[in-house]
Design a binder for these strands. Structure first.
Lengths: 331, 331
DNA sequence: CTGAAAGCGCTTACAG
DNA sequence: CTGAAAGCGCTTACAG
């Protein structure tokens, strides 16, 4: 049997209260008592039972990250950033995949007795399920939920991408959007529209391709593009995710189209691999690990400080120029 | 304040013991009592406090996954598989990054009061830290630790890759290895050696390139390869990870080398993106989600059954033929 | 089938 | 600075 605090107390010849204090708030205990206790801890091999402490203190010691799709590498770096902050702060990181979690289960997950706080990476969750513990939203956000948001300016980022294509001389510009209803997809689409309209251009229906952020949907968009009239189809395409950009570029290349010779391609996110494919992909870099770290810090503040500040945290993005964008082909 | 079980008991006019039974083991309670209790639960809005139950039952309700590098997308799918099994079984999934966790902290993590069991994805951890709770190892393994291993036959997989290159007619074959000391890297290297030696070939020092599974190290290997005598350097290269294969291929392409025209490239893992780059990469597919699921099931069995079976679980791999391998160039 | 009571292993007012 | 005691919110032998 594992030694309990009372075993240590017996060995040290003090009360359990004193052992507890010596361990958690040493400054409340005389130096010699402390030494006695530490000796007894050593001798008994005692280790604090966290579950018991947490129950007594009415906390769980854990933070739950709700991820739309754990299998998606995009979230790996964010989780890494979260873990980096949470670990040293003494919190456990719990993760759950919202895809494989039905709404009822979700309610059970977002439970004060399961986690002290939530980091929500899925903007599609029902707000009601998320009101019982402190929440911070990262990347995506639940519009109906009033809680701090750590994110980038998706609209401005999209404008930057379009501005880049226009600066290269492109006039026929296409956009492969993310899933309908997704807050990121809508913001990026809006930014694209705005940037084009400011220059007197407009995003016509034929140049707006459906997508869902996935590789496969980028490939689908490529198949549509390939069937369009070469004299009319976009010479520059901005895709709302790098995965889609890879799928798009891979497919058009396979059909003998040169990137960026025949078509310029720009993605979004700057996931790791795309710097190493051929041609390396121009993209908008999102500081994923930093988003995770900030979200975690923000949540810790509201868990510890109890402060209820709720302004959004807007992180900067960066246009990363690589070889997949160039001047448009001469018609 | 949240209602406790005693509130429900008062409203229902029964004891807390009865409420507890009605909720957890309804068959022990009369039908009418059960109805009374459920009504009282409804009325009070009662929700079970998991932390309290767990303390009483001497469990934590959580499983901890120890990941070598959370930011590495390779582990995303494995975690997804783990989550898929753990969630429905009522366990929380905790994750920790072993990179950002020093040995002392690790000891604290692998604590019975933190998690009921461990899924270890890092073969480099000290065995002593992992003996206090049930463990299953997945992908990698800690050689000194006797615990179930869910993995693939890395050696046989490497032999398959080499056999493929040889069947295409390659005779000068190179290998970019994983990090020294890593169990996977060593097994894949051993398989490579064996397969070559069986055919009377041998892996000379110039054809064995250092690597650490990362994109950057694949690129490094490419730089070495590029400097070697075109008439002597390998015409086919097997890399111990897809990331390295991407890095390698991207770099040689950038220097005007054709894949597979000038050099055939084969990776390992079948991560998602590589099917969509140009050319799509030939590789050895590792069933990552399935590895995660099996590891989780295995651990659940030893947590619930208490069974101590310890045979390894060997999952099949698959050689996925794509366009990055072909017959060697005519010298 | 149900209840009174002990206890999971801690922490923390309260009193001295 | 230290201890006795209550209590975090449950579950579970034990007795009836």
């Amino acid at each position: 049997m594992r030694p309990r605090i009372s075993d240590v107390a017996r060995v040290a010849g003090v009360s359990t209260a004193t052992v507890s204090r010596a361990l958690s708030q040493p400054e409340l205990v005389s130096e010699e008592t402390r030494a006695l206790v530490l000796q007894a801890v050593e001798k008994t091999g005692y280790r604090l039972n966290l579950a018991a402490r947490n129950l007594r203190q009415n906390r769980t010691g854990g933070v739950l990250a709700l991820v739309p799709n754990l299998a998606n590498p995009f979230f790996a770096q964010i989780l890494s950033g979260i873990a980096e902050v949470l670990g040293p702060a003494g919190y456990n990181l719990l993760v759950a995949d919202t895809r494989i979690t039905d709404p009822d289960t979700l309610l059970e997950y977002a439970e004060p007795s399961r986690a002290d706080g939530l980091i929500v990476l899925d903007g599609g969750l029902p707000a009601e399920a998320l009101r019982r513990v402190p929440v911070v939203m990262a990347c995506e956000w639940v519009p109906a939920l009033q809680a701090p948001r750590v994110k980038i300016d998706n609209r401005a980022a999209a404008r930057q991408a379009i501005a880049h294509l226009m600066a290269l001389g492109h006039r026929r510009i296409g956009h492969v959007r993310g899933p309908r209803g997704n807050v990121l997809a809508e913001a990026r689409l809006a930014g694209t529209r705005e940037a084009l309209e400011e220059q007197g251009l407009c995003l016509d229906a034929a140049s707006l391709y459906p997508g869902d952020f996935s590789l496969a949907s980028g490939r689908e968009a490529a198949l549509i593009w390939l069937r369009q009239d070469p004299g009319l189809r976009p010479t520059g395409v901005f895709l709302a995710s790098d995965e889609m950009a890879c799928g798009f570029m891979g497919e058009v290349q396979r059909q003998g189209i040169a990137v960026p010779g025949d078509v310029s391609v720009i993605g979004f996110d700057d996931i790791e691999l795309i710097a190493h494919i051929s041609p390396p992909l121009t993209t908008i870099r999102q500081p994923r690990a930093e988003i995770g770290r900030l979200a975690a810090r923000r949540l810790l503040r509201s868990l510890e400080g109890g402060e209820a500040a709720c302004e959004d945290e807007l992180l900067p993005v960066e246009l990363v120029l690589r070889a997949s964008t160039a001047v448009p082909p001469r018609a």
